[in-house]
Amino acid sequence: MSDPIPPEAAHALVPALRETIREAAALALPFYKAGGQTGARVWSKAGGSPVTEADVAVDTFLKVRLSAMLPRAAWLSEETSDNPVRLDAGLVWIVDPIDGTRAFMSGHPDWSIAVALLSAGQPVLGFVHAPVTDTFYEAIAGAGATRNGQTITVSGQRAVEGARVTGPKPMMDRLARGAGTNGQQAELVYVERVPSLALRVARVAEGSIDVGLVSPHARDWDLAGADLILREAGGTVSDLQGRPTTYNRPDPVHGELVAVSQTLRNDVVAALAPR
């Protein structure tokens, strides 16, 4: 396994990485039609999930550019065949070229490009870019998180009652029941589901959502970049035992997760526990 990247070296990659992601967005945007169906060619992958020519173009572009930027880093992305060499690599790029492909296809603005760099198994750089609104979330391990250059932090919400929650409805219903008292469900503020999982987590980091719920079968590329952004903003992506998410395992698939501030984590986890 190669040596982990020093913090100053990770820092030095940020300007070029930001520009590369902007260039990648410029490849996808011509295929996006606000409020309408994409003009891109669409087909189904094994398992039935859709992919477009924009996903593939962005993935190919990022693989070439990021591999040139850091040649010793391995690669894991949604649109590239997995290579087990990543399991022994000290550095790994984890990329979702278009997170929220169905949103992209249908003209919904909430899709994103998500990029993370793992060093010794932990994310050290995290980027989530929403091209339609030109919103850039960024984080460097130990240096905080930003939205379009401005520091962000999680909300100050201190109770599940009254929290702004988004995610799959069955999980939101479980949370309301589990957080209730005296046989009454907790009152939650339901936020429209954010199709891009990376954006859902980033919005918890910026404080516009208090609790982001994640159904099973999310992949590393949906989460790793946004997870670092949330960590640096004072939150966490945890499983339902409260354990932090881990990345670059042989099977990069996750179970149910919560994206939440450190303050709310224990209460949210407890409310979602099986009864």
Rank of each mutant, 00 (worst) to 15 (best):
V115I: 10
R174K: 13
G178C: 10
S44Q: 15
L257G: 05
L175T: 10
A226I: 02
I209D: 00
G180R: 00
S49M: 09
L117T: 08
L188G: 10
A25W: 00
V14N: 06
R164Y: 01
A89V: 06
T101P: 00
A130I: 10
D267K: 14
R203W: 05
A198G: 04
E138P: 02
G242C: 07
P84D: 15
G207K: 05
A130Q: 15
L257I: 07
L175I: 06
N248W: 03
W43K: 02
S112E: 02
M171N: 08
V253K: 11
V132K: 07
L76M: 12
D267W: 02
S155D: 12
Y190G: 13
S112R: 05
P50I: 06
R177Q: 13
I229A: 02
V165E: 02
G47S: 12
R174F: 10
V201R: 01
S77M: 03
V58Q: 09
A68W: 04
G35S: 10
V95G: 06
V201F: 08
G149N: 05
G126A: 04
K169V: 14
Q150P: 00
I113G: 02
A205W: 07
S208M: 07
P123H: 03
A143I: 03
G47I: 07
L87M: 01
A114E: 05
P168G: 15
D222H: 09
V64L: 15
V189D: 15
P195C: 04
G48K: 05
A143D: 08
H108R: 01
I5S: 05
L230K: 11
R243G: 09
F127E: 14
T20M: 11
A186Q: 11
L118W: 11
N266C: 07
A10M: 14
E256S: 12
D227R: 14
D99R: 01
V64I: 15
I21D: 13
A145E: 00
A40N: 02
D110A: 01
P123I: 00
